[in-house]
Structures are given as C-alpha cells and as structure tokens.
Design a protein around this nucleic acid. Structure first.
Lengths: 210, 210
DNA sequence: CGAAAATGTTTCCATCGTAAACATTTGACA
DNA sequence: TGTCAAATGTTTACGATGGAAACATTTTCG
C-alpha cells in the first residue's frame, strides 16, 4: 500500500497534486474564454477547486500568475515561429513571409495569451521563467531577420532598423487586428478580402533585397 | 446679489460648476502619473474633491469615463498628426516620415493616453464622442497615406496594404517602444543611438515610390 | 520517529464598481 | 415670481477583488 489516494479520492484530497499546472491551465481557459479582466486569482482558484488563497503558495500574487502564464505563451510562440520558419524552406522572401504569418497567426489563434504577453504593466519580466521565455522568442525572431539581409557589410543601425521594422510591422498588424481596428479597412475593400489576404499584401510590401 | 457663490465658497459649493471637465482633467493626470490601473472612478472623484458616486451623473460608469478620456486623446492625436503633416512640406517622403514621427511622438509624449486609446476592452467605441474622435484620427492617417502612393491606377488591395503596412509599422513601433521591448535592441547598438534615431532608420526602410 | 517545510484553508481588511435612496441646486414654465 | 421637475451630489450598502495573517494538513527528510 502506498500513500497515494485513489483517483476519485485524490480530487478531494487536501493536497492537489499539481496545483500550479492546474491553475495555469484554468487561467488560460478563463483568459481565452472571458478575457483578461475575468482572469483573477480567485476565478482561477475556483476553477481548480481550491480555496482562493491557495494560488499564493505557487505564484505569490496575481502578477506572478500572469507572468508564469505569459512565459508559457512565449514558449509556445517561439515554437510556432520556429515551425513556420522550417516549413518555409530556404528562400528568404518565403521565410520572412512565413514568419510574419506565424507571428500574426499566433496572435489570432491565442488572442488572450498574446495580449497578456505584451501587457508589461501586469507582468514581471524579471521572473526567471518569463525572462528565459522572452529571450527564446527574441532569438526566434532574430533568426528570421538574419535571413532577410544577407549583406554582412550592412551597418549595425541598418541591421537593427530592418529587424525593428519587421517586428513593428507584424506586431502592429497583430495588435490592430486583435483590437478590431482593421475591420473598417477590410470591410471597405472590394471582393471577399479577409484579414489574412490583407496580411499577405502587407507582407508583400517588405523589401527583402535592397 | 446673484446666486453665484464667491470663488472661495464655490470650491465647497454643492455643485461643482464643470465637474465633467474637472474629472477628465484629473483622470488624465492620474493616468499619466500612476498608470492606467490607478485610474479608477473613485480616484478621479477624490482628486476632484467630490463624492465617489458623483462621476456616475456624467459618465455612467467607468467605461464611460475612460471612453470620454480616450476621445479627448484621439482629438489631440489627430491634431498632432495634422501639425506634423503641415510642417513637413510637400515631399511625400518627408510627409510620410513626419507622420511616422508624429505618431510615435504622440505615444511617447502621452504614454498613458495612447495606451488607453487602444485598450478596446475598456472602451465603448460606439459612444458618439469616441466614435467621432476615432473617425477624425482615421482621416488624418489616411491623408498621409494618400500622399505616399500617387499612382491612381493602384489596385484597392494594394492601396489598403500600403495604408495598413504604414499604420502597422508606426503603431507597432510605438507599442513596442512604450512597453520597453526595444530597449535591448537599442542598448546593444554602437554609438549613442536612441529610440528616435532607430525610428528614423525604421522609417527610412519605407518604400515611397515603387 | 519527529521536526520543518510545503501546501491549503479560513478569516479578515481595504479598495473597487455599482445601485439605490436621499439631498440640494438649477432652470423652465405657469 | 413661485413652484415643480430635472440635474447634480451625497450617503449608504453590497458583492467582488487582492492580499495578509493565523491556522490546519500533508509531505519530506534528517
């Protein structure tokens, strides 16, 4: 006989088992279903079936919970970007387009998570988990931009400007799209244009080789 | 003898005089000084020296106050963009750069207001004041983009893509800058590069004439 | 085996948004 | 000019939140 309770009993056990992961999972569900303002410590605790003060042991405070969730988001984000790159082949033009679609696609697929990831006043970027996860995402993004400007003689400022311009472009598009600010523009286009086709047209404006 | 109280007495009068404007002014101060999370109905009421329920008469609820404040922001934003355009002269290249600097400059000068203006889950864009103000800003932005592509034979999708690309670029840059996400990139550049010089380099990547 | 650390619960407090009842002032109309 | 309705503020109250503190239970490890 071990000390483990049965499955049925473990649900009512004093100790949860893996409350931290459970809270993060419930938090993500709440975030994507009801928005960031509905994601409270108490709501996550309720969903996980524990007392409202239980999360404190694992996250400290609300910022802690949100930061850990954002870290998970950045890890998935990095993976999605890397996937987009590998599927794109070797053509720099295709790679940069794939990265842009991957960036905006992630934001569209996980709107709550994406919004949280860039809500810096709610997060503590010094938390190790979040710091590591944002670093991974930065590197994934940098890989795409390096493929864009193969000219090794470019000045650092110009290289940085290309990276910043690409990042700004896709981040701005994703943000405006999520906020619904592009709907008017898309609706006034002839034909059945969608946000995706507009994105393709936007990505086509990028100058890959100077 | 009229019914007006003296200045000294009027500060303690039952009726405020122009509480709506006073609340908006205090709200903006709180927003820029302590951030959006500190901007509460009760904090604004306290700053204006009225009871915590007084704002309800003028704004209904918190969304109402935030929406009116965002509307003020959009009006100032439109004016700033128009100013930047008029000062830029007639060269399309200069106009588009001026618009970009004006866009990011406004966000930098009024970080709280700018963030609020695009926090759509906190606002009611159907409020007349906010609807009108956002329309004005859209038109100011459209004016800049028209100057960029003088080719009347361009397809609507290409025109929209140029507009969306420019908007995404400057909005994304402004957002990332405000969130501090560009600091690492700027800090790793040689010389004394600033966010402003990076922005200039980013705007220089825009293709004005195809 | 037993103490210390982890993990959860309960209780409590200040703050918030909001509603409702009430008080005061203003303004329009007879 | 007098009066009454509307506009404007205040007070009181309620439920929800984040968080602190005291306490209970379980696990871990010396």
């Amino acid at each position: 006989m071990n000390h483990e309770a049965t499955d049925a009993a473990s649900r009512r056990a004093y100790h949860h088992g893996d409350l931290k992961a459970a809270l993060l999972a419930e938090a993500e569900t709440i975030l994507e279903k009801d928005g960031i303002q509905a994601l409270t410590l108490r709501a996550a605790a309720r969903a996980a079936g524990v007392s409202h003060a239980a999360p404190k042991n694992h996250f400290g405070d609300l910022t802690g919970l949100l930061s850990e969730l954002a870290a998970l988001g950045f890890l998935r984000f990095s993976a999605a970007l890397a996937d987009a790159m590998t599927e794109a082949g070797d053509d720099p033009r295709q790679r940069i387009k794939a990265m842009g679609r991957g960036y905006v696609g992630f934001a569209t697929t996980h709107p709550g998570l994406f919004a949280l990831m860039f809500r810096s006043e709610l997060l503590d970027y010094d938390r190790p988990a979040l710091r590591d996860a944002t670093l991974a995402a930065r590197q994934a993004l940098a890989a795409a931009v390096r493929a864009r400007a193969p000219d090794p003689s470019a000045q650092p400022l110009q290289m940085a400007a290309q990276a910043a311009a690409f990042w700004s472009l896709v981040h701005g598009f994703a943000t405006l799209r999520l906020e619904g600010r592009l709907n008017g523009m898309i609706g006034s286009l002839p034909g059945n244009e969608t946000a995706d086709s507009l994105l393709d047209a936007v990505l086509a404006t990028i100058r890959v080789a100077d």
